[in-house]
């Protein structure tokens, strides 16, 4: 026991110097990448995930198309250099398929797929660094990428992990903590408080579950504020870039369609 890292010391600090309910640094980058319709890179501490969204577009797998709504296709790629020990996982790996399936089931009730019959929406998740909270980072990044692609969502989906060390709950676990204590990941739609995903791979006492579940739902609200800020900043930037130019066109040229010009004069 002596050589092991203390999960929570007597002063209430965790192994990386955080308090019990403190989240790690979050950065969100919504700049476009390549030909993706929407993309986002998110970091939670040392976990870094990049998501590209393509679509809605013509379904590649004709057999799986649905006549009344779009199909969500989630593919996860974990970079071999993302962990401490370098290991190449192939695409058929059970862990990866499970991760993809959880992301897919998280977004299925949120994305308004009924608006796009016979199409397909591809969500490609690239894990660049992992230090715990992989599912949480993937879901948050996928939400932002979907927003960036202009795909209608009922709400932003905010995910966060929580765990319990003996009796004290804590949030946003690192790999070190995830290996040691029981933990769960919760994805919440903050507006209604609906939960679209709860997953737990370890055993947790039923009395502790309620506390930690409520705590993660609260923490999701905090992440929601951050995601909203990032989405607003990105949207503002795009809209402003368009606006500056439309004004200058009005001054110089008469090549704008009358309707458009009228709208801008208003």
């Amino acid at each position: 026991m002596g050589s092991r890292v203390e999960i929570l010391n007597d002063d209430g600090y965790r192994s990386d110097g955080r308090r019990q309910f403190e989240l790690r640094d979050i950065t969100m980058d919504l700049s476009p990448r390549g030909t993706a319709d929407g993309s986002a890179m998110i970091t939670h501490g040392l976990t870094q995930v990049m998501v590209s969204v393509f679509g809605p577009r013509e379904a590649k797998m004709r057999a799986q198309t649905l006549h009344d709504r779009a199909v969500l296709n989630v593919e996860v790629n974990i970079a071999p250099f993302s962990t401490g020990e370098r290991r190449k996982r192939n695409r058929g790996d059970k862990r990866i398929l499970e991760l993809a399936a959880s992301i897919k089931s998280t977004f299925e009730p949120v994305v308004q797929t009924a608006l796009y019959p016979r199409s397909q929406i591809d969500i490609y998740v690239h894990v660049l660094q992992q230090d715990g909270g992989l599912l949480q980072a993937s879901i948050n990044a996928a939400t932002l990428a979907l927003v960036g692609a202009g795909i209608p969502l009922l709400d932003l989906v905010c995910a966060v992990t929580g765990g319990v060390h003996s009796t004290s709950p804590m949030l946003d676990l690192t790999t070190l903590e995830e290996n040691d204590i029981p933990h769960l990941t919760v994805a919440v739609m903050p507006k209604t408080g609906n939960v679209t995903l709860v997953t737990m791979e370890t055993r947790l006492h039923v009395d502790r579950f309620g506390d930690i579940f409520k705590l993660t739902c609260d923490a999701a609200q905090v992440i929601h504020q951050e995601m909203k800020r990032a989405a607003y900043a990105r949207t503002r930037r795009l809209v402003d870039a368009m606006d500056v130019d439309s004004k200058s066109i009005l001054l110089t040229g008469d090549n704008v369609d009358k309707d458009t010009a009228m709208n801008e004069l208003e």
């Binding site: 403190e22 950065t27 700049s31 476009p32 905090v222 951050e226 800020r229 900043a233 990105r234």
Partner: peptide, 19 residues
């Protein structure tokens, strides 16, 4: 692509904060 400079800086978020 370089990170979006509008939102390049991560800021530390402590929980719980005032909603």
């Amino acid at each position: 692509a370089p990170p979006d400079d509008l939102y390049g800086h991560g800021h530390r978020v402590a929980h719980p904060i005032d909603p």
